[in-house]
Write a protein that binds this DNA or RNA. Structure first.
Lengths: 289, 289
DNA sequence: CGACCTATTGAATTCTATCAATTCTCGTGG
DNA sequence: CCACGAGAATTGATAGAATTCAATAGGTCG
C-alpha cells in the first residue's frame, strides 16, 4: 500500500506539512544569554570572547592567527529573539560573528516545512557561505537575543590582500563548517532518531564547551522541540518521544532551556559520538571505527 | 508497538545495516570517462578543462580569477575505479581537482552503513575541507577511472601569500561546496524519497552541464543504485522502487550508466528544483518560494 | 508613594495517544 | 548489480490535554 503512494507525482504533502511551525513565534527570554558570562577573554589573545577562544584553538593547531581580524570586528549589532538576521535572497556580502546568543540558518520548502541547516552558538560565524556571493543562500534567525559583529565582504577582501593569515583562517573556518554540515548529513541520512538526537546533544555540548559555555553536567539550550525536529529532520512529536526515552533511560534531560547530561559516556556510546570533527584535530567526522 | 522500540538503547541495528554495501566492489568500466571528451578548453582562459569552466563562471560573476592557479595544477595523478583516493585519518593537507571521472566523499559508521557526503564530477575539488587540517575528515573514493591534479597545502599557502585573488577563489569554492551540502541536508531531512532522487538527478545534470558534460536530454552517471542510496539516505532497494516510479511516469530513466531526462520540466516540478544554488548566483539553496 | 510579591490570563510549549504510511529488512531470482 | 514482492517497523500526521511561561494587574508592606 505504501509503495503505491510513492508515485512520482505525490497527490499531496505526505510528509511534513507544518506551515505553522515555520512561522511560530519564538518566545524565549530576551536575556537568555545572561545564563552564562559574556566575557571569557583569554590572556594575550587577539580577540576577547568566544570567538577569541576559537582563534586560540586555531593557533594551537598550528594556524597563524591573523592580526587583521580585530579590525573586522568593529560594527556591533543586536538582534531580538525571533528576528530574521538574514533572509534568503537578500543581498549577500555580509556575515556575523556571534558574540552572545543563538541563531540558526534554515531553508523553507514549498510545502511549508523547514530544515535547519546549522545552529550558531557564541563564537560561530553566521552566514559565512553567503559572504562571498551576491545573494544570501539561506535564512538566519535569532533564537535568543543576539549580540554579533557584522562583517562586510569589502572589509574582508581588503584585509586579505595584506594579510594572508586571515585568508587561511577564513578557509579553515569554512572547512570546519563543512565538517559540521557533513555530520548533519550523516545524522539525518544514516542514524536512527535516538542516535541522531543524542549525537546532536553531544555536538552542542562540545561546541559550547569550546566557547566556554556549560559544564560536564549540562549546558543552556534554547532550542524548542520544534526547532530540534527541524534541525534533525524529525517531527517535534517524535523529538518528544526520543527525549522521553533519553530521560527515562537516564541519559539526558531537556528542561526549561537546559540540557542535563545525566550519563555522558553512555550517551556517547548510544550516539557513536566523537568530538574530533569539532576540534578540527581528529580522525574524522563520524565515530571512530 | 513501534514507539516502544525506539528506546534509548537500541537492541540492535533497526535501521540500515548493510555492512556489505560499504565495501562492495565497484565494477564500473575503467574507461567510463571516455563517454565524454576530455578536453573542453575555452579560449583564452587561465586553465583548460572543466575546472577552467568553473573558473570562467567565477569570473563572470565578478570574481577575479587568480593568476597563480595554474602553478598549483602541476602534479597530475590517475586513480583506478574503486581506489581510495583519501582515507579518514590520513594525513591532510591535500586536495584533488578532478579533471576526468567521478569520485565521492563518504563516511562509514560503526554498524557498517555508509553515508556519501558529496559526489565530485569533473571540475570539482575533492577533499577541499581536508586541505587545511592535519588529518583527512572523510574518505574519498574513485568511482570511475579518475584523472586529477594533486594540490598540496604548502603550495596553496605560498601562492596565497602573494595572490589574494586565489584566497578569495578558494573561499568561494568552499562556500559553494557548503551550499551543496546544505541542499543535501534539505534533501535528506525534508524531502520524500521521490523528491529526493529527482532533485539529486537534476543537481547532477546541472553540475555536469556546467562542466561541459551531458545534454538537455541526459548525462552519463556511473552511480549504482547502492551509491545513490548511500548518497540520499535511502536503501538501494528503495532507490530501485523510486527509479521505477520515475521511469513509469515518464520523467527519467537510469540505464547502463546513463540518465535520460525524459521530462525535465515535470521532473523539476516534482523535485522543487532550482539550479540557483549551483551557479552561486541565485536566490538560495532550495526551491523558490 | 514605591518596591515587591502574588493571582490571573492567554499563548506557546510540552506531552500523550492513535492511526497511517513511508521506508526498511529479508528473501529470491535474473 | 538490478528487479521485485511480502512483511515489519520506524516515523509521520493529527488531535487534544496538561504544563510552562510571559505579561499584566492587583494587593501588601516598607
Amino acid at each position: 500500500m505504501g509503495r503505491e503512494q510513492s508515485s512520482a507525482t505525490p497527490k499531496g504533502p505526505r510528509r511534513h506539512t507544518p506551515p505553522a511551525e515555520a512561522t511560530r513565534n519564538l518566545r524565549l527570554a530576551a536575556d537568555f544569554h545572561a545564563a552564562y558570562p559574556p566575557e571569557l577573554t583569554g590572556d594575550g589573545v587577539l580577540v576577547p570572547g568566544p570567538f577569541g577562544l576559537k582563534l586560540e584553538r586555531y593557533a594551537l593547531q598550528g594556524g597563524r592567527p591573523p592580526r587583521s581580524i580585530r579590525s573586522l570586528m568593529a560594527h556591533k549589532r543586536t538582534f531580538e529573539p525571533g528576528v530574521q538576521v538574514m533572509q534568503q535572497g537578500d543581498a549577500g556580502g555580509v556575515a556575523y560573528i556571534i558574540e552572545q546568543g543563538w541563531t540558526f540558518s534554515s531553508s523553507v520548502l514549498r510545502n511549508g516545512s523547514r530544515q535547519i541547516l546549522d545552529v550558531q552558538v557564541p563564537g560561530d560565524v553566521a552566514g559565512l557561505q553567503s559572504l562571498p556571493v551576491p545573494t544570501a543562500a539561506n535564512d538566519v534567525t535569532a533564537i535568543t537575543k543576539v549580540h554579533a559583529f557584522e562583517i562586510q565582504l569589502d572589509a574582508v577582501m581588503d584585509a586579505i590582500s595584506s594579510d594572508a593569515d586571515l585568508a587561511a583562517f577564513i578557509f579553515w573556518l569554512a572547512a570546519r563548517q563543512n565538517d559540521v554540515a557533513s555530520v548533519r548529513i550523516i545524522d539525518i541520512g544514516r542514524r536512527t532518531s535516538v542516535e541522531r538526537v543524542a549525537h546532536f546533544i553531544l555536538e552542542l555540548a562540545t561546541r559550547l564547551r569550546l566557547a566556554g559555555i556549560g559544564t560536564d553536567s549540562g549546558f543552556p539550550c534554547p532550542l524548542t522541540q520544534y526547532l530540534l525536529g527541524d534541525a534533525l529532520g524529525l517531527t517535534s512529536v517524535h523529538v518528544n518521544r526520543v527525549l522521553r526515552d533519553l530521560r527515562t533511560s537516564g541519559l539526558a534531560h531537556h528542561q526549561r532551556g537546559w540540557i542535563s547530561l545525566l550519563n555522558a559516556s553512555e550517551l556517547s556510546a548510544v550516539a557513536g559520538f566523537s568530538s574530533a570533527y569539532l576540534r578540527g584535530t581528529g580522525t574524522g567526522c563520524t565515530d571512530a571505527m
